[in-house]
Design a binder for these strands. Structure first.
Lengths: 335, 335
DNA sequence: GTGAAAGCGCTAACAG
DNA sequence: CTGTTAGCGCTTTCAC
């Protein structure tokens, strides 16, 4: 293994000079710099991460805590993770992947060991048990998601309340009066996941405001669960003409079942989804939808982290405005 | 920040004793150990990762290199990543997430900096440019996937050649004679991804052996691409009665289109998939399929890594035997 | 513009 | 069973 000392000897300079050439923290004469750079190249030198971390108290690592659950739409999680990793690299950071499994213990491990300089948390619950630890640790952190009390924390998320409202408005504008919301799996609500509850809230408020009749049903996704859910919806509200789906794995079953029941989309029934773009585009009917800006969320989370690490406090809640794209699945309500 | 020295002072012992209590590398009297443990607890001590890495030349980190591409089925990648992370934690390792983006440079960065003790690579191409670097670095590595020359490397993968053969056998056994294989996106073959080519090879060999007529068509997935592909298949081979699909995003479009054309599954046409269990089960027809053992692959990769780190050489290629589960999508060939 | 030297916090001989 | 001590490789004052 080549060390900085060897490079220094090879270049005929002191260790500190090599270090400063590397960090750029003080000016070095052109000739010295070139000599050092040449030696680095010649010897194939790579700074040792551990030594660097010890001496500088900086690891250049951002910890990313992902949910282990399988009841969320995985590609979105993945897209966020990849955006985080890519953006982090662009700022000189690597990413340590943690799963939610360890829960608060992982937070303690990371903050305690100095393994990472900052943390990004996904799948935040309204009253997340990792947050108190995070607050007291003073480690820069950014949440992707919005807890009920974001005080002292930086959060990045789609504005799900506005998203719910936007979907309701779209359907109302087309003349629909009876609406059914097909939601995430019941477990998602049971653990009080922020985005699911906030969507529902936005939906409810706006529905009331616009005089819509709203039915909300969590759904496991898949054909069997959807058959049951849909049956109940039309039993209770035969006049339902608009659907809002927030559950990727319920989308195709819903479309398929409506078709089988002879209900045409969008002539008889309109469907609006809250989902990844890919799902909206690949569905058997191109879906009018609010897309989940996964890439943007991941990127912005990292950018906030980097800002914080640069010493600028940004205890901000950044809610991304929803955008609804009209496609083939929504149209005027039937008479 | 609490240091080991402070713990030592608090417990009235030397630093090395604390260190040995932590590592268990030498026996400590019960009373001393308890005193030390109590001090650790009382002071809230956490070992510093950087210092530890520097002194021991061990980071307790495994680097996982994932593809950044979006043309592979994401949930499988994710399941592997989570299995890797979970298994790694069980062995005391954390996971550093790298994207394929940086390519060979990332390998150099990790091996050079001592940032990780070992590497796991996903999405291995037949002639992967990261492999030479990996071989010369002497860093323990495990590939998830199988390159054309696995010499000196440990590999874990589903036996895709056997998988292809197994699918062909299943259809042949049901009396099908003309078979179409709907494959991954063309780009996947263009970059010579091991699993795709090996599946095809197994399929071809076995088809020849059994006297099946085989047509292979890469497919982008989605309804539009599938419409075109399917049209061509039935133009060229009107007698096609069996399909083998290895592309998650082509599954539902294929089923939907067959239905629209009035071809019943499995009465008129049989479909066998090579895909994640979840896809096979959630499809509109429950699919006869060989499932991708993602969890197992991730877990075994880590276990091989750990074995290597323990000093035992295991330059093995571990091919997981495929298992075909018969469900509702395959049946006897029509007359 | 450059060097010397003191640690950063921990591990692992070596010594008893 | 426990203590002493010499580093691990780098960063960063302090000094010139």
């Amino acid at each position: 293994m080549v060390t900085l000392a060897e490079v220094a000897r090879h270049a005929g300079v002191s260790a500190s000079t090599v270090s400063y050439v590397l960090s750029g923290k003080r000016s070095i004469s052109r000739s010295t710099r070139e000599r050092v750079e040449h030696s680095i190249e010649a010897l194939g030198y790579h700074p040792n991460a551990g030594a660097r971390a010890l001496a500088s108290s900086k690891s250049n690592i951002i910890a990313l805590m992902m949910p282990l659950r399988t009841d969320m739409y995985v590609p979105v999680m993945m897209e966020i993770a990849l955006a985080v990793t890519t953006t982090a690299r662009a700022h000189g950071y690597d990413v340590l992947l943690l799963t939610g499994e360890e829960g608060p213990a992982a937070v303690r491990r990371v903050t305690g060991s100095g393994m990472a300089d900052a943390m990004i948390l996904m799948d935040v619950e309204l009253d997340d048990e990792r947050l108190p630890l995070l607050r007291e640790s003073a480690m820069p952190a950014v949440l992707i998601g919005l807890p009920s009390d974001p005080a002292g924390l930086t959060c990045v998320d789609l504005d799900f309340a506005a998203t719910g409202a936007l979907c309701a408005e779209h359907l109302a504008g087309l003349g629909h009066r009876e609406i059914a919301a097909i939601g995430e799996a019941p477990a998602v609500y049971e653990r009080h996941t922020g985005f699911a509850e906030r969507t529902l809230e936005g939906l409810r408020l706006k529905s009331r405001e616009l005089g819509l009749r709203l039915l909300h049903r969590p759904s496991q996704g898949g054909y069997d669960a959807m058959t049951a859910t849909l049956g109940r919806v039309f039993d209770e509200r035969p006049g339902t003409s608009g659907f809002i789906v927030q559950n990727e794995s319920a989308v195709e079953p819903l479309l398929g079942l409506l078709r089988r029941q002879g209900r045409a989309v969008p002539e008889d029934v309109s469907v609006v989804a809250i989902c990844a773009d890919q799902v909206a585009l690949q569905a058997s009917v191109q879906l009018t939808a609010v897309s989940i800006p996964a890439e943007q969320m991941g990127r912005q989370a990292v950018e906030h982290v980097v800002t914080k690490l640069a010493g600028q406090a940004t205890d901000v809640v950044e809610l991304i405005a929803p955008e609804l794209t009209v496609r083939a699945s929504s149209g005027l309500a039937p008479e």
